[in-house]
Write a protein that binds this DNA or RNA. Structure first.
Lengths: 206, 206
DNA sequence: GGTCAGGTTGACCCTATAGTCAAGTTTACC
DNA sequence: GGTAAACTTGACTATAGGGTCAACCTGACC
């Protein structure tokens, strides 16, 4: 029986076959790398539900090889989510946390989040938790939720955010924006940034 | 050969088998009515991409009977879109046109549009023109576009709408909102209405 | 250079959905 | 109540995607 990827990776590893402790044969290691690269590119272009056969073809292997190494879509996602969005999401959170002014902190975080979604349509799958069995996705979603709650709380306390605005409102807007980017025609940078400004403007206290 | 629905209905008829000029046998007329009712209900609940077999089952007929009378999904949509959303969309436009104050006109139209989308998830398919071969959908989408352009123009002229806000911005927001309603968890009335207010607030001149 | 565990894959099966049609059933009308 | 046109349908084909596995390859090591 071939080695199977299980869901026991510690957060941050994200590498196929790692948890087995066994090392891969040269050809297998090459295939894993090619699959990862193909998945990354496919997920970026078409979202996390890209047919695995397409990814396999792009990697020059058969579909079954993906199942061998990653166990299926979930495992593949776990293996590349770090490179796909997690790194940037955590970076956006860290960056925001380093901003002193409460309003600027919120504005920075929201702007960066929207910026990431513009570049990376797959980010919407993180928000929607389309694949709730992926541990890393769940962890990431939780971190993002905590961040939002905390930012909104701070904004209210500092009086820089309208009092009737909630973290749930922010989540809803993010989901809506992500879906619009994925389903509709992609807006120009200029249009997109202007809409970000509209949104930020709407958050100030009345 | 059984009569087939073609795409020659004049706007507003929306009835299967009408354009043939022939009248239906009693059993066929009953089936058409049942299919329409089932489609209406299914489209409301699950959107315009509900499997036809499901609609057929709900109507107590076979899938082939839907093809006989409506020619396929497109024809079915044409046959029920009027009852589904077109009536309300046109009503919202008319209502807005009767409002004197330019800002109130915009606010009324946006509020009603969002209200309709809340009640009717299928409305998003009209905006996105998921089924671009449906004549009535295309006509409806065009009417809505014209309405938006005109409202925004009037708002700018009257100085009640921020100058950098465009009809495309309104369209984008509508699409985003419709998708969020369809894909994500349905927000409470209270939350939804509050978000409508946020959006309207963001449109005022700075 | 032979062996075999590790690795790969073509060829499956399964599900869901769209769409078609020959054969059978039902209605309307004489 | 017979018949022909209208109507219905079960059974079919086709497409797309997930998932599995027996049989076959190949790299690593002696």
């Amino acid at each position: 029986m071939s080695p199977r990827a299980r869901a026991t990776n510690s957060p941050g590893s994200g590498n196929a076959d790692r948890a087995t402790g066994t090392s891969l044969r040269a050809d297998a290691a090459r295939n894993v790398a090619q699959i990862r690269a193909a998945a990354l590119s496919a997920f970026r272009g078409r979202g996390l539900s890209t047919p695995l056969e397409e990814i396999a073809a792009a990697a020059g292997v058969s579909k079954a090889t993906i199942y061998n190494h990653f166990g299926g879509r979930q495992g593949l996602i776990d293996a590349v989510i770090e490179d796909l969005v997690a790194t940037e999401m955590y970076a956006a959170m860290d960056k925001a946390r380093r901003v002193e002014d409460p309003w600027e902190r919120i504005a920075t975080y929201i702007t960066d989040r929207r910026e990431l979604q513009y570049r990376e349509p797959a980010a919407i799958d993180v928000l929607l938790m389309t694949y709730p069995d992926s541990e890393q996705l769940v962890a990431l979603a939780k971190a993002a939720t905590d961040m939002s709650n905390s930012l909104v709380q701070q904004g209210h306390n500092a009086g820089v955010l309208r009092q009737d605005f909630t973290a749930a409102d922010l989540y809803y807007t993010d989901v809506a924006n992500g879906l619009a980017l994925r389903e509709g025609p992609k807006p120009s940078r200029e249009d997109y940034d202007r809409r970000t400004r509209f949104f930020l403007d709407s958050l100030r206290p009345r």
